[in-house]
Design a protein around this nucleic acid. Sequence first.
DNA 1: ATGGTAACTGAACGATTGTTCAGTTCAATG
DNA 2: CATTGAACTGAACAATCGTTCAGTTACCAT
Lengths: 195, 195
Amino acid sequence: MARKQGSHSQVTGPLVRAAAERLFARHGYAAVSMRQIAAEVGVQAGALYNYTPDKQSLLFGMMKAHLDELLAAWAAVPRGNRPTEALEAFTRFHISFHLDRPDAVFIAYMELRSLDPANFAVIEGLRRRYETELEDILRRGKATGDFTLPDTRLATMAVIAMLTGVTTWYRDDGRLSRERVLRIYWNMVRKAVAA
Amino acid sequence: MARKQGSHSQVTGPLVRAAAERLFARHGYAAVSMRQIAAEVGVQAGALYNYTPDKQSLLFGMMKAHLDELLAAWAAVPRGNRPTEALEAFTRFHISFHLDRPDAVFIAYMELRSLDPANFAVIEGLRRRYETELEDILRRGKATGDFTLPDTRLATMAVIAMLTGVTTWYRDDGRLSRERVLRIYWNMVRKAVAA
DNA sequence: ATGGTAACTGAACGATTGTTCAGTTCAATG
DNA sequence: CATTGAACTGAACAATCGTTCAGTTACCAT
């Protein structure tokens, strides 16, 4: 046996990336073997190398794609001019985006150490660019007097940590609706940075 | 060659646990081999099995020790009666404790998925007990009217995530002193839950 | 001094790892 | 319908994995 019926790279390729993402998120990059990924796709391990030069590229590719998409999606979000409005937009965007992609988020935050130094530099740069988006909002709000922030960088990290934390406990079929979570978090953020 | 000069289990034992903790934190449980740990200690891989029945126990042991210590340390912290005082005590304790043990904290949060189901249940239970300490404070503060919290459980998770996030960026030789970080974070927490 | 035991070596084990590749089968083109 | 290239198998590769163990050495109580 060799090629399967109805097999196409346009079909198998996405399946490979999806299986890898799911498994990496569940068990961690180092704990997942190429054979496990292949089994999930329904293929032999060797076939994966039609879709990635190696295991590391599989990880790097999905992390880069995730961060590119994150930055692009935020760039497309309409936001008010005033810092408070921008901060609310960011809060709601960040939570929503992350809740929609729990696996990708988990990998992006947990598997940084599994990246080659060169790949790490790229991903770290993108992550930093995203943080700067929030930092800029906070800085503007501080300048206008809308926010009270002893240290803007620290506030940036604190808010991001708090928002990203949602992914660790939120369940779609849980006690709280998504909209309710968004509202409560926005309220906490608003008060935390309030003048 | 066999036994080294001056070798004692009281010396080597802690060295093994320290090396494992450092390496697990740096590269992840699955990515670290027993031979790497042994090399860090200056010993052959087989010698490690005088100090642990297997690799999994090494991980479980350090996570359990960490959480036991965390709960004991918090129990020993003097705190005021009023919810606001208790919350401040918790905030300062949590950050301080975590900044003192970056590796143990990292492992406790990242390697949950590397635990056997039985071990996971134990660790998860301890973690939950710790979260409940904060949740109780918030609940009391809500009852007395000191705090405004639409959802106590959500607030608990948000605050813990924010506080634990400190470990991802804080450096002892960094821009901000520890005391300054403590103060700023307490201010944000205070405002976030304020009535 | 000597025997016992604690601490360790070094080699080995079966299993599994990422990756390669010659060969096989299917889909699409002419 | 013949041919070509894409998609995949199945076996193999060297390396490494966690773990075991017989043997060797150093420490310590007697």
